[in-house]
Design a protein around this nucleic acid. Structure first.
Lengths: 223, 223
DNA sequence: ATCTTGCATTTTGTATACAACATGCCAAAG
DNA sequence: CTTTGGCATGTTGTATACAAAATGCAAGAT
């Protein structure tokens, strides 16, 4: 966290391609279950098949694609069970982040988080869902940063990225949204009190509520 | 868990290469920090550079290699901090596995685990360290299987694989080993009582003890 | 003597040709 | 009419050639 990174970000071609594909998947341009034709895609992206294949491998590692031998890559189609399992793990990790953060949080950190909580409530008040999600994410990132465990942050990020293939925005109806904001307030209180166990419980329950919301948006899909 | 998979395992060349490299890394033939020359390695393994590169990507995804742009791949060199962070996350995941398992365990499962516990104690009694580790791993796998969350199992496996690059076997002196076996007995008790919270605590502490042992074997290495 | 600068060599990155495999169709047999 | 075998076509897997980048060394300048 100390020192500055002045190196210019040199992204390799596979990385750029992977990022591009990731966006296409998250935005839904590439639907879950869709098969990705290498030649076709490589022409569209303007790269040859080799770097594209490396991009496939990266995305497969993140769980956004599955690769079948001799049958290429396709966008993952997560079942409700998959989502449930992923959330179960993410809740546990988020709880750990809370515990760690409670043990290490400084007053300066708390001030930052209080400011973010303010942003969150304002976004809520004006029903600005995109803004709400942005702040929400910022709070989460900050918490993870305070927790100070890069492996934890990385693991969480990977799991989360996988779920984004679903792109469940929307679906925060009034009651649920109000409750979520209130939960955030409780969480901030537990953190200020340095009560790791309480924060952990709150986070786990918070994630559980989120899971329910996501499952509802998924509706009665397959499996 | 129902039904049999009769499909013959068709491993692709990159998979085979990755598996081979994984073994070389774990066994220490490829030391941490070592740079992997593509041409050289591809000749030694008898594959061309393309599948080898895909193998690199897979291992990098598992965290066994790091890939630097235009500078190839090298075996990760984990710092003590890295190990600490990884164990922190693994302990949390293992705890979750315990909680879930306690909620779903059947009497038949318990019988299996009791048998394994017997194996463990026998291996301990005759100071059979490799055997002990094997049974230890079997118990862990069984627990994860009972927990019934593939995402959890997968995440744990990945983290664990990364640590194996260190190949810390050995280093279980008398006292620690005795204590580990006793802990296993307690864990089995908590599972039999379906006490998820207790099992969770035991597992987290168990992993914490393991971390200490690992850190000792790492000695006063760099960073 | 040390530091820079350019060149030679090595190594990685990308494109592409060719081989292996999968898939769908059609015809022929039951 | 259904099923099976073979073939044609398309798609992925692998090898290799070429391009771009990095590294090490040596010669010259300060």
């Amino acid at each position: 966290m100390d020192g500055f990174d002045i190196s210019i970000a040199r992204s390799t071609l596979p990385q750029v391609a992977a990022e591009r594909l990731r966006t296409l998947i998250i935005e839904g341009a590439l639907a879950p279950g869709a098969r990705l034709n290498e030649r076709e895609l490589s022409e569209q992206l303007g790269v040859s098949r080799t770097p594209l294949r490396e991009a496939f491998r990266m995305l497969a590692a993140d769980g956004l694609l599955v690769q079948l031998p001799n049958r290429g890559a396709q966008v993952v189609a997560l079942s409700r069970e998959d989502v449930r399992h992923a959330f179960e793990v993410m809740a546990s990790l988020e709880g750990l982040a809370g515990e760690l953060a409670a043990a290490r949080v400084t007053d300066a950190d708390l001030d930052d988080l209080k400011a973010l909580q303010g942003d969150l409530e304002r976004a809520h008040k004006r029903r600005d869902l995109p803004g709400y999600y942005r702040v929400n994410r910022a709070i989460h990132d900050r918490l993870n940063q305070i927790a100070g465990n890069p492996v934890l942050a990385q693991t969480y990020r990977t799991l989360n990225a996988r779920l984004h293939a679903l792109r469940f925005r929307s679906n925060l109806n009034g009651a649920k949204w109000d409750r979520a904001v209130a939960e955030h307030r409780s969480m901030l209180g537990a953190l200020a009190a340095r009560d790791g166990a309480a924060l952990r419980d709150l986070l786990v329950r918070h994630l559980h509520a989120k899971l329910q919301a996501v499952l509802e948006t998924m509706g009665q899909d397959k499996e």
